[in-house]
Amino acid sequence: MFVVLEAAAISLIVSNNSQQGSVFFNSANQLSGNILNTQSNVFDYFSLVSVNKALLEKNTVLLQELERYRQPADSIIIPLDTLMASNYQFKGAKIINNSINLSQNFLTINKGAKDGIKEGMGVFNEEGVVGRVKGVTKNFASVISLLHTELLVSSKIESSEVFGSTKWDGRDSKKAKLLYVPRHVDLQVGDKVVTSGYNAVFPEGIPIGEIIEVAQGAETNYLDITIELATDFSRVSYVYLVENLFEDELQSLDPSN
């Protein structure tokens, strides 16, 4: 009996390890989703002030950006082909469940298949990258947090355009590692790290963090870079989801498929 139950539990652990897939036994299912939603409705009031402040700051930045794109009255718009067309579609959602202290953390959001959320969509907020959708149910979706020791996010250093992968090492919820940056690259502490746009999940240039420490890697050809994450995961409450409209087309070009 003991063996049977333990085997069942371990098979559940193994099946849950995939990056995408079914999320029935998970906080995104109907019952637990509703309970968490109710809970978050109650506890949300305590974070209203900081959420409002963050939104106000984001709005200010967007207003400044918008000013640059405003068309003078006498200009005409020339439609371009897919080269310049908008590749990305955005959606908003609220976090109803979050964890930061385990080594494989997940978030749950209050939008699901009904609202057009799909597996593999990128998730970010006004500060920076948050994670990636693991699976969806009708009303909720489960998101792999950037604070998950197996999630890699394709990134680059903004100033020098050097590519790497951001991965959390499981220690501190404010810091992560930037992997696969060769030793010869010249880096400065304080350089910004952003998404690279090579991974077809995130648009280019969403903040990930800032380099705070550069060391020679112990035995590899790569530098050991520590970054401070732009997103404060202990406070994330509202997020944006991004879908790459050309993801299928990009995937079909990949020779490894």
Binding site: A9, S11, L12, N16, S32, N97, T108
Partner: peptide, 23 residues
């Protein structure tokens, strides 16, 4: 053990740690 399995699974569902608490 059966009660433990049920309770562990219930906690796992909310923690998104499927099977860990159960095991």
């Amino acid at each position: 053990m059966l009660i433990a399995f049920g309770l562990g699974l219930g906690v796992d569902v909310f923690y998104d740690t499927l099977g860990l608490h159960t095991a």
